[in-house]
């Protein structure tokens, strides 16, 4: 926990400096008759972020914050495994959208999660995994007219478009 606290504070400090530099692409000073420049607001806020990060580091050195005293691990092995399985699964789902579209990605993700992480029966798995995209299709594409990405599965949907849209 102690190391994670310091590493995060330093990373966030780097992010703050990047944001300050990025804000400075626009004027950050006072422009006569126009008031503060376009970058001023975000520049000073990013500076405040940097200040907070330094404060966190000071607390770390003095061991005054709970994290800087903690000897627990940032992620226990079990938690890390769960985080990688779940977070990785969600990331893979978002990535899959570009190939098999939203509905394909949802189907695959639900099978992965419910069957492999949840250990439910195939019957439960398939009914939820197949039912969800169908409900979502009628809700988004048909009722809301928000067309969700279809990826390479687009041709499969053409007949459905003809019927419902």
């Amino acid at each position: 926990m102690r190391r994670a606290e310091l590493v995060t504070a330093l990373l966030m400090a780097a992010l703050s400096i990047y944001l300050m530099w990025k804000s400075a692409e626009l004027p950050i000073g006072w422009i006569p008759d126009e008031g503060p420049g376009g970058g001023a607001f975000s520049f000073w806020l990013a500076a405040a972020m940097l200040g907070s990060c330094l404060w966190i580091v000071v607390n770390w050195v003095r061991r005054t914050s709970p994290q800087s005293q903690s000897t627990r691990r940032f992620m226990e092995p079990g938690v890390l495994k769960m985080f990688l399985l779940v977070g990785g699964g969600v990331t893979a789902m978002v990535g899959l959208v570009h190939f098999v579209g939203m509905y394909g990605a949802i189907f695959v993700f639900l099978i992965y999660y419910i069957r492999y992480l949840g250990g439910h029966s195939w019957r439960t798995t398939v009914s939820v995994a197949a039912g969800t995209p169908v409900v979502a299709f009628f809700f988004f594409d048909v009722a809301l007219r928000i067309v969700l990405p279809k990826g390479y599965l687009e041709p499969w949907f053409l007949p459905l478009y003809d019927i419902f849209l």
């Binding site: 779940v86 969600v90 789902m93 978002v94 959208v97 939203m102 990605a105 949802i106 993700f109 639900l110 999660y113 419910i114 992480l117 949840g118 250990g119 439910h120 439960t124 939820v128 969800t132 979502a136």
Partner: peptide, 12 residues
């Protein structure tokens, strides 16, 4: 384990 993936899907 059924609710959680559905929430992820809803978020997506």
């Amino acid at each position: 384990t059924i609710l959680a993936p559905l929430i992820f899907v809803l978020s997506l």
